[in-house]
Amino acid sequence: MIKNKETYRQQKKVQNSIFTFLAFAFFIFSMLQLNIVPERIVRSIERLGYIFGNMFPPVTNEPVSLFTAAIESIQVAILGTILGVIISLFLAVLAAKNLTISPYLGYAIKGFAGFVRAVPALIWALLFIVAVGLGPTPGILALAINSIGMLVKVYGEALEEIDMGIVEALESAGASKVQVILQGVFPSVMKAFTAWSLFRLDVNIRYSAILGVVGAGGIGWELMKAAQMSRYDEALMVTIVIFGMVMSAEVLSEYMKKRANAASAQALN
């Protein structure tokens, strides 16, 4: 018994050393494959020093357009989130195993959501640009569809976890499907839904900041412009604005989550 334990520990140790060695070997191998060799590193560090030196002090020549671009990003995120939330609410009810009208429809929606989720938002933006042209619209649609991918999954999971007794109780009182969902199911999952939706808004604001780099509106394009002209001081300014957007989104969604929880905790009618 004790001996077994001892050998097991020994084995584990050997195994871990092998893992560590393999991890290190793969690291070196990857570096070589990417042609990251010492001289290149030294040269890039020089370049990085140059970039860094030129970043300060951050400036902007067009504060107004920078500001409008930042606002546009936020608006893209808001619309993408709202559309995503509304559509996901419907799809999630149809996708949840316990509420769906047909299991096949449920699988179809889940499969769709899984696919849509796996393609990154920026790639969706790229595809939508080809389909509908440049501007904020493809950005909004890209965020909406990528949000659907995630929200259908998490909403669906919340729905599948509800106590089916509630559904049975309301059904046995003669309530219709819509009544059961709005009166029984949604109050039970409201808190989870709110938290996830706010989380998604947070994520979407992050994404919206970079959608511009492929031409889907917002502040990303300002960054592209500054970087292409090698104006690192302007690029830093844009970066700081993006940082501010993302930070405030995080703080705001935290605050709203608390507020929403407080409101539902009041247990009003």
């Binding site: 007794g165 009182a173 003669g174 309530a175 219709s176 819509v178 009544q179 039970s188 409201m190 247990a267």
Partner: peptide, 27 residues
């Protein structure tokens, strides 16, 4: 029991009337 736990007691009792109401009013 199968009550909607997050709703007030009286609302749970009101749910008994859902079968008599129009779908949207009840919903």
């Amino acid at each position: 029991f199968n009550l909607v736990k997050r709703l007030p007691t009286v609302r749970n009792v009101l749910h008994g009337k859902l079968g008599y109401m129009s779908t949207w009013k009840g919903a």
